[in-house]
Write a protein that binds this DNA or RNA. Structure first.
Lengths: 248, 248
DNA sequence: GAGCATTTGTCCGTATGTATT
DNA sequence: CAATACATACGGACAAATGCT
């Protein structure tokens, strides 16, 4: 008698093992799991899919199953989130590419946020963010022209927009408003995030304003893959405890 | 020629249909889908499971597959979230039950939050929340004794703790700090939420303080099923636009 | 570039278990 | 008790992507 099996039991066992492995490590293939646990392919497969649902592994057709790494992205009033710093401090390799950068007339909703007439030309930028060369997020940013004369060449570097505005434009940008939720992505976003399946993604909208004048300067929306990023959002005037371990 | 199929295509078709149906409506069974789309059980099943992953349906063994309803739970600095009001305004039926209510010595972390000695006796309460008689959330609340002499009998009613403190205790409670994230639930929480599978849940921690004195009065943690509740979190001093339709 | 083995993705048919009605 | 419906499982097959030769 081997033991009572069931794919849930196998998944639990594998989950324990995966917890001990470094991100990127390759797991046993479905065939190997079949032999190891004495089950059919359906069960072996179901177990690994269970791990995928839990966000513990990432599967690549033709290649294998790998231990996943998820990064905490903390959003709070005070903190200025930097993609590179966040990813690096998690021990991963950050990268970002500029997909497009140009002047564009603002769509209606954005115009409202920035407090300008719809159709006004503002800087518009799309960026892709990577973690360990895996697509993690796409973002869209709108910047009023009076905050910055030109955006294109300056943004070649891997810097945050806030940083740039503080240096190039002489604006002290502070977060004015931010909303986070999860949604099913549009097909466009899904394609940009290279998701070949439908799953909820984080949507982070934010408005930054000039600390001096109080007027809105940038509006941005970011879509983040939930299997790569875990958004943690904090509201509050007090930092309650430094030693909170949220995710074991 | 019928058409090219694939469970993703079937799922897409079904998703469109489900969008038109009222929450609670029963879907066609897997057998019926087999006949309708001319596929095997595996494909019909995969399609419906896809809808479940998207949060569009809820499946009950022995009973069937039903159109799901997900409720937005908005957390912001200003707003005092009321379970009953939130659920009701979404057109659903709220309910909550008190699992336990007693004086208990605070655990370490909570003591730190409330600013009391570990082991001090405070009110402790566990509540279960329902939406349309489906388990939606479990919460744990800690209240300092000086804010309220007795908690038990008063909380039989379906009211918010904030409300009670404002009436019984003469305390004006304001949200001081709040953190939201998603985590894989512990087995205990999973059981309380009646989840027979493992999936991430919302974790909302918050500290409320007396507006007058500024000292912390309550600390609470809530775990919410992501298939029932969608947490939206807002940080900000401005309400940017009244007409934002987040979820189509 | 072509060819090949590996690995996951999709699908079929069938069967049995288990909860609900 | 019986019918229904979802959950789990087996074995087999081919497709598609990847990586190596």
């Amino acid at each position: 008698m081997t033991e009572r099996n069931g794919y849930q039991v196998i998944a639990g066992r594998l989950a324990d093992e995966v917890a001990e492995l470094a991100p990127g490590t390759k797991l046993a293939s479905e065939h190997e799991l079949m032999d190891r646990f004495g089950v059919g392919r359906a069960s072996a497969r179901a177990a690994v899919q269970e791990l995928e649902r839990r966000g513990l592994v990432r599967r690549v057709r033709g290649s294998g199953t790998f231990v996943n790494r998820r990064i905490d992205y903390v959003i709070s009033r005070e903190r200025r989130p930097s993609w590179h710093r966040t990813v690096e401090s998690a021990g991963a390799v950050p990268r970002s590419t500029v997909l497009s950068s140009q002047l564009r007339p603002v769509p209606e909703r954005c115009a409202h946020y920035l407090g300008v007439e719809p159709g006004t030309e503002v800087h518009h930028m799309r960026r892709l963010r990577f973690v360990d060369d895996h697509v993690a997020a796409v973002g869209e940013e709108w910047v009023k022209r009076d905050a910055l004369t030109e955006l294109g060449p300056a943004m070649r570097i891997e810097e945050s927009l806030d940083e740039l505005l503080r240096q190039m434009g002489r604006v002290d940008v502070v977060r004015s408003w931010c909303r986070t939720a999860m949604e099913l992505p549009s097909e466009e976003i899904q394609a940009a995030l290279e998701m070949n399946y439908v799953a909820p993604v984080w949507v982070v909208e934010s408005i930054n304003r000039d600390a001096a004048t109080g007027t809105a300067v940038t509006y941005s929306t970011a879509w983040m893959r939930a299997d790569v990023i875990r958004v943690v959002m904090e509201i509050g005037d007090t930092e309650p405890a430094p030693n909170i371990a949220l995710h074991r």
